[in-house]
Design a protein around this nucleic acid. Structure first.
Lengths: 203, 203
DNA sequence: CCTAAGTCGAACAGTAATGTTCGAGATCAT
DNA sequence: ATGATCTCGAACATTACTGTTCGACTTAGG
């Protein structure tokens, strides 16, 4: 059952297809197989030679994106000051969201709901743990459900991605904007909002 | 060119179609004309008798939603304390977002980009004015672009709508959650986050 | 250099949606 | 109650996409 090693050009094409599919689907979740093949500089038949169906292709794209996200998040130190840890987490996850953020829309249409839920669960739990920690220390607000706070981080990050895409937010300002926004959002009523620039590399 | 007055049953059907289209498109922006007609308890031919094309139908649905939104927002008093005014604005706009929020996705696919931009401009300007006012008074943060702050209100409100839809947030908690979230988010670094419950009807 | 592996375009079948046409029948309005 | 208005299902043309098959061609690699 072991798949024979692909020829060099075939391996190149698979890579090109995955790259093209990533950018095409991020731009338009309804992008056709034809568009993707053309963007990859490859015939439609060749694409089907490597990916059985559209569903298989987007699954492969998503898997690759998730693997990269995992890798970039695993290294983040979530201990110590919760606010500082949050800023580190945002810095690490921002690039991934910018590249792959819009993919979820494409994924939602061709993947079973259970798989989507499972894929979302792990990163949400990671964030949830950090927020709970901050709440226990009195640094993050407790007057709103944790699940809601997790959702806001998610949604604010995605909003930043589309803002950058639309030219409303400069790419190099984005991570700081997200961090500043979240630090204010998470501060308990009656407490003072921390300055994001103190918590980041102050240049 | 003045359209003759419709017969009673025709008027009823037009209403039913608009209602059905609103809920169907909010649930699934790709809902087919067939689904909408069936949901309205009407044949597909009848629908086409009243709405030339899918584009015309969604335009009509959007127009009705925008009119209702306009009506509910026009009455909001935006003067006085900016934080209190923001809370009033959120309370007024929340119900509309909950009902019509997901429509924008459907609208984006069948309306010219210019129309979408124009439709978004007016409410954004309203919010922008309020935020500028708050910034001038030192109540809202000035270390982030206003356009970004406007975007966050937009995105947080929509996130609340989908959270309610998914059962993660109780409908009656939503408006308070949005207001609390935004008040924290908008507080300048170094300042104290206001308590939302003091600014709302304290029950 | 020669073969197996890979590519490509064209042409095909299948599906699903939009929009139109027709005529028979129901419903409102006067 | 009678004619204009409206509804409805079925059938049709059109378009767009997915996925497959075929045979001729190019390329990798020993």
């Amino acid at each position: 059952m072991t798949t024979r090693p692909l020829r060099a050009d075939a391996r190149r094409n698979v890579e090109a297809i995955l790259d093209a599919a990533t950018t095409c689907l991020a731009r338009d979740p309804d992008a056709s197989i034809n568009d993707i093949a053309k963007a990859a500089g490859v015939g439609r038949v060749t694409l089907y030679g490597h990916f059985e169906s559209r569903a298989v292709l987007v699954a492969a794209v998503v898997a690759r994106a998730m693997a990269e996200a995992e890798a970039s998040l695993r290294g983040v130190d979530l201990t110590g000051d919760p606010a500082a840890a949050l800023v580190r987490l945002i810095d690490a996850s921002w690039q991934t969201t910018l590249r792959y953020g819009a993919l979820v829309v494409a994924a939602e249409k061709s993947m079973p709901v259970a798989d989507m839920a499972a894929a979302h669960d792990e990163p949400r739990e990671r964030v949830r743990g950090l927020l709970e920690h901050g709440r226990a220390e009195g640094r993050f607000r407790t007057d709103l459900p944790v699940s809601w706070l997790v959702t806001t981080l998610h949604t604010v990050t995605h909003a930043a991605a589309t803002s950058v895409y639309d030219g409303e937010l400069a790419p190099d300002e984005a991570a700081r904007a997200i961090a500043a926004t979240m630090l204010g959002l998470l501060t308990p009523p009656g407490e003072v909002v921390p300055d994001v620039d103190i918590l980041r590399g102050v240049g």
